[in-house]
Design a protein around this nucleic acid. Structure first.
Lengths: 333, 333
DNA sequence: CTGAAAGCGCTTACAG
DNA sequence: CTGAAAGCGCTTACAG
């Protein structure tokens, strides 16, 4: 295995010169640099990251820490796309990102700062964190740049990449109303999720936008559970048989798909008798007919922006901040 | 940041003793070890991986190298689930896995051995590799343990985790026949893909199993392309209007979904007039009615086994070899 | 512009 | 059972 020494020997210079030449220090004669670069290349020399981490202070090692990876359930589309986004940013930048699974349990055992020291990390992206996770608290006081995906990070080093759930849900609700459905049924997510509250706020804003009174609104608490959504929507319709013309405004696509199924199973026609809208923008919707309107959260973009911001923060070229990724309304049929 | 020195000082011993105590060497007095462990814990000490990599020969750093991550398309379910599987193996094992995107282009620029040296890797899992990728050739002669997911790796250090595509496709074809469909239409993938050839072989075996002659078989070349499958199936049926009772045996679920759509769009009934079978076991099928029969490739298990095998090989507890992950026939409606 | 030298935080023969 | 010391492969003040 070829080390910096081999390059130095071959080039007839000292290791310090090799190091400076390869790291683009400007106090190296151009001809020397050229020679060293050529030799390094021909030898297939690659500096050991470990040695670098050990000797250098300024390092740019980043990692994505994902909570909930260890389980045996299929990977959700959001996380997958976010990973894609991360990687598309560093692609070609000669960078590398490590991925670590962090359960709530392990967060309790090892502090984030310890973790970062152990793996020489100078910044992390955090995904899948839940309210109440230990790292959330620690981040408030840490000096390691952290970027939260879909979770608000506090503290002077905490940055966040979010969807503006309030506005997004307001948009989709307004869309339903514009389609002519003035009586709304909110298919709601679970209360513990921060997004539920935001989306609910957006819902209420849309009500105000359209002067819709609470009497024209019902709420089905479905906790982001498909089966529950199916059951609740079904029994809701059965209960109020004659009351067609309602829009089921759902807080997730999966609940929307379940709602649509319930409606069709009862013999009603989608988009006509009832309207269903979703939220998330998952692939599945491309295969369900008629097309359900939804909000695309643009997870690839979130991953990309998260990575970009993290790098900039580490390089001191940007300040930690919250970035809202533009959502996109996808119309239905 | 607390280092091994801090622990040593606090414990009143030398750093060598701390190192040996924490690494479970057996030449340390039990009381000393206990004291050191307690102090290390209370101080929140974590050994620096970089320092370890540099000083120690035996290391167990592993990484997953994924080709095709840099693109902007959504992450496919297979890769996502495979990642889940990997992580579920190392979960709780106090291990960590790095993830690197490797395009074909970058493979040409940096040899695998150089890559592994740069990041102190003692073994890698390779996913998404295509026939003809540079690393495939290099692996034949490398001494770094490599595990290929869904790709056959050669050489004394090459291991592979595969689906037995021949048997799996034979199974699903037999299933179609058992359902009473003796006239088969193979909806074929692209020729360049290794799996296409294997699945075709399985298809032919099933023909033999059931004494089906070539005259009762048609082949639609659809290249794993949904639109092509839709078009081809549609025009095929239109051409032979009266010939109902055929089974479209598809080499992928997505093509199967397209085929099913084509059939329904023509006004025929699925499972009755025509049968459609898939291959892969993607989530989408859970939402399409009637349920399309398929083969579940069990990607989570593949990731899990890949990780397990790699670790064992590195520890010299198992030899590199090919493992076929059991596929599962999922019946349709 | 270049080199000698210290040092990063560990591990591991070696000596006792 | 324990410690002193060398060494892993780099980076970076410092001297010239």
């Amino acid at each position: 295995m070829v080390s910096i020494k081999d390059v130095a020997k071959e080039a007839g210079v000292s290791v310090s010169t090799v190091s400076r030449a390869l790291n683009d220090y400007d106090d190296v004669k151009e001809s020397t640099r050229k020679k060293i670069q050529d030799i390094a290349k021909s030898l297939g020399y690659r500096p050991s990251q470990s040695a670098r981490n050990l000797s250098s202070k300024r390092k740019e090692n980043v990692a994505i820490l994902i909570s909930g990876l260890g389980s045996n359930s299929p990977m959700d589309e959001f996380t997958g796309n976010m990973l894609k986004g991360l990687n598309s940013y560093i692609q070609g930048k000669n960078m590398v990102i490590a991925m670590y699974g962090i359960s709530s349990k392990m967060q309790a055992k090892q502090k984030l700062s310890e973790f970062c020291r152990q793996y020489s990390l100078s910044g992390v992206i955090l995904a899948g964190l839940k309210l109440g996770d230990p790292y959330l608290e620690e981040i408030k006081y840490t000096d390691i740049p952290c970027v939260g995906i879909d979770i608000k990070l506090e503290g002077k080093m905490g940055a966040s990449i979010l969807t503006n759930d309030v506005e997004a849900f307001r948009d989709i609700t307004n869309y339903a109303v514009k389609k002519g459905f003035f009586k709304l049924v909110l298919v709601r997510g679970k209360d513990e999720a921060a997004v539920t509250l935001d989306r609910y706020e957006g819902f209420k804003k849309a009500l105000k936008d359209n002067d819709i009174s609470d009497r024209d609104v019902d709420i089905l608490n479905c906790k982001f559970d498909e089966e529950l959504a199916y059951k609740n929507v079904k029994s809701y319709i059965e209960k109020y048989k004659k009351r067609k013309g309602r829009a089921f405004v759902c807080m997730s696509d999966l609940m929307a798909v379940a709602a649509a199924r319930a409606i069709e199973d009862l013999g009603y026609r989608l988009g006509d008798d009832f309207l269903v809208t979703g939220f998330d923008g998952i692939q599945l919707l491309n295969y369900i007919k008629p097309r359900i309107a939804t909000i695309d959260q643009n997870m690839i973009e979130k991953g990309y922006e998260g990575m970009r911001l993290l790098i900039k923060i580490i390089k001191n070229e940007e300040e930690p901040r919250t970035i809202y990724i533009k959502h996109k309304l996808i119309k239905g049929e």
